[in-house]
Design a protein around this nucleic acid. Sequence first.
DNA 1: TCAAAAGTGTTTGTGGTACACCCATGG
DNA 2: CCATGGGTGTACCACAAACACTTTTGA
Lengths: 224, 224
Amino acid sequence: MAQTRYHYPATSVDVVIFTLRADDLQVLLVRRKHAPFEGRWAIPGGFVEADESLEAAARRELKEETGVRDVYLEQLYTFGDPKRDPRGRVVTVAYLALVSAPLAVQAGDDASDARWWSVYKLPSLAFDHAKILQYALQRLRYKLEYTAAGFQLLPPSFTLTEIQKAYEIVLGEPLDKRNFRRRIAEADILEETGASTLSRGRPAKLYRFRDDAVAEVKTRRLFP
Amino acid sequence: MAQTRYHYPATSVDVVIFTLRADDLQVLLVRRKHAPFEGRWAIPGGFVEADESLEAAARRELKEETGVRDVYLEQLYTFGDPKRDPRGRVVTVAYLALVSAPLAVQAGDDASDARWWSVYKLPSLAFDHAKILQYALQRLRYKLEYTAAGFQLLPPSFTLTEIQKAYEIVLGEPLDKRNFRRRIAEADILEETGASTLSRGRPAKLYRFRDDAVAEVKTRRLFP
DNA sequence: TCAAAAGTGTTTGTGGTACACCCATGG
DNA sequence: CCATGGGTGTACCACAAACACTTTTGA
């Protein structure tokens, strides 16, 4: 790739895309077509174009890989170790994305293949991507503990049991049903759609987010 | 991916350096010697060198400006708007630093002058530095609410009243003396030096951090 | 002995957690 | 009528917040 004739690092973005599929927290990875790390799995990403903001670059990559727009996207951290890319100096700005529908994935130019992987059973990753992914996972869990971001992983309408399951999958621990429902109710961020599921057993009410709900719920301070 | 011949963005680091001086939360700014924004105040920073990690670049800038090493330093956010620097594309990785001693500042090559400014009375800043500074201030306040990072702003030994004042200055609100002392005691992060102040009134015991204290105190979750 | 700052406990309220049964529907 | 998943309330405990007086020293 671009040999740095001039001594500025190349700037790339990498987007860690999480979703919930099959009662599992999964992340989208692409298989690299070219050296270095040819054939290894990697977090989707690419170089920032000349007149494009970082977030725009991240959204472009996200669109190329998944076809989705208007999803939750936040900047995570910037990784700039001089040796993180064997081709030369590349500083990468990592983003975290949460998508709801487990839609068909589209491999971009840079990848021969793309698929969802359980975060609990990951393959060996290219570059320092294992580190980036762990960082993203930690941030996601942390975020769920004090914000309502977890809803971004769900379809537009969902039952209370579904959302509780989503939280349990991401956090990796069971939650109490009545307490969970009380907190959701108190947060006042959902509204009934009016519809219900028709499955086995008693039908469940469907909910959606209130458009005007505030996603960032502030914690009480612990210290001092 | 479009690998046309274009210049990668330049990569810089900017370091927002906070300290406590004169019962005030202050930030170190440098006056720019050259265009653009000649004569305007700016957050100290500079370009990342060829074989230097981002954090190393930030520490180098910090050292050039203040002469200090081994201080608290954390990556904040990366600002990459294509128009943020009129000279051309510059992506900057912002860092937050907390220093204790209000030491003499040393102007680096890039600045004709450097001084501490109260965060409550800032001059007009170059580039998008006002935005970066506000972001840093928000992060500092947030951090103080759930970690013991505030100690980094104090000299190696201090009284309980001093540290309470430090928290009050940064948070901008008064705290209850007995509750504050109880929380500090429960956190179990201080030890007595054995010495006391000799001022007017009753002498106060001096404390220092325990070397083995854990700085990151985890919050209880609020949601769900 | 007075002024100045340090130091010290208790009470009350709120929020967190644990816990078990009845309800609505389809087969 | 039974199996399946949906939906509901209370009691206890721990932590947070509010609050005022005594102690130690220097001048």
